[in-house]
């Protein structure tokens, strides 16, 4: 296992070990990074694909949980609802490392789910990212649906829509905002390093993803791969942002 324990000291030493001492080294790192990207270096491609698979799976599961849960919180009134809302807001702002720690404790051999043997697998990473993203999607869904319900309530009740029917209708009516919420969740998950590092272990060819590789390779002084992945991460963010804008513009043209 190629874990990276003392990150802080490692970072401090990185520059020294790599012996890079200026702009020219930085430039050569950029050059090799570009080369890795354009030649579709197999290590790089593998890591990128794994990252996308983990994050997309996590966001999909989080959406399947978060959308109906948020809609239910918006439309139903029950004792303890306010408590759940506070909990949700708390979870939204939770530092990823603590979520990672929590999942680690659950999945570690002596933990309650230890027998599943999920620690240091991509499944564990999906669980951790899902826990990070689901509260965001649920909280934003709750807010969106509640605002829409305020506007639609009389009309939908007059038509005779059931609460379940209304929930479905409002989720569809709020699709632009909710899509944005999901992309925001995707952004948080794909940029996150602490949680997946703890539960995934950053094992080469198994659980190594973009963010954990960047952390590791930087500390090792292998700036080319780190920078290559960094560029790709930035591009992913760019695509997400462009996607949000493009989606909104298209939806707007359709009066959504």
């Amino acid at each position: 296992m190629d874990n990276n324990g003392g990150e802080e000291t490692a970072h401090a030493c990185a520059a020294k070990r790599a012996g890079w001492s200026g702009v020219s080294d930085l430039w050569s790192a950029v050059e090799s990074a570009a080369l890795l990207i354009f030649t579709l270096d197999s290590d790089l491609v593998e890591i990128v694909l794994r990252s996308l698979r983990v994050t997309l799976t996590a966001v999909t599961i989080a959406a399947v949980i978060g959308l109906p849960f948020g809609a239910a919180l918006a439309l139903l009134r029950f004792p303890g609802r306010r408590l759940i809302l506070v909990a949700l807001d708390t979870l939204m702002g939770l530092p990823p490392v603590t979520v990672g720690l929590l999942v680690y404790l659950m999945l570690s051999r002596s933990g309650p789910l230890g027998t599943l043997g999920l620690l240091y697998t991509t499944t564990a990473m999906i669980i951790a990212q899902c826990l990070l993203v689901a509260p965001i999607i649920a909280a934003l869904t709750r807010q969106t649906i509640e605002d829409l319900w305020e506007e639609y309530r009389d009309e939908l009740r007059s038509l005779g829509a059931s609460t379940l029917g209304a929930a479905g209708t409002l989720l569809w009516e709020g699709r632009v905002t909710l899509m944005t919420a999901m992309l925001a969740g995707f952004g948080r998950a794909s940029a996150e390093v602490g949680a997946v590092m703890i539960v995934g272990g950053n094992i080469d060819h198994v659980t190594r993803v973009m963010t954990t590789t960047i952390a590791l390779e930087t500390s090792k002084g292998n700036l080319a791969l780190a920078l290559g992945l960094g560029i790709i991460l930035v591009c992913v963010s760019l695509l997400v942002a462009a996607g949000i804008h493009g989606f909104k513009a298209t939806a707007h043209r359709w009066g959504a």
Binding site: D154, S158, L159, G160, E173, W254, A256
Partner: peptide, 17 residues
């Protein structure tokens, strides 16, 4: 008997479709 009634509101809500 609501199913036999309909109402048009002062500011009717149009669905986004």
């Amino acid at each position: 008997v609501q199913h036999a009634q309909a109402m048009v509101f002062q500011q009717p809500v149009m669905l986004r479709r």
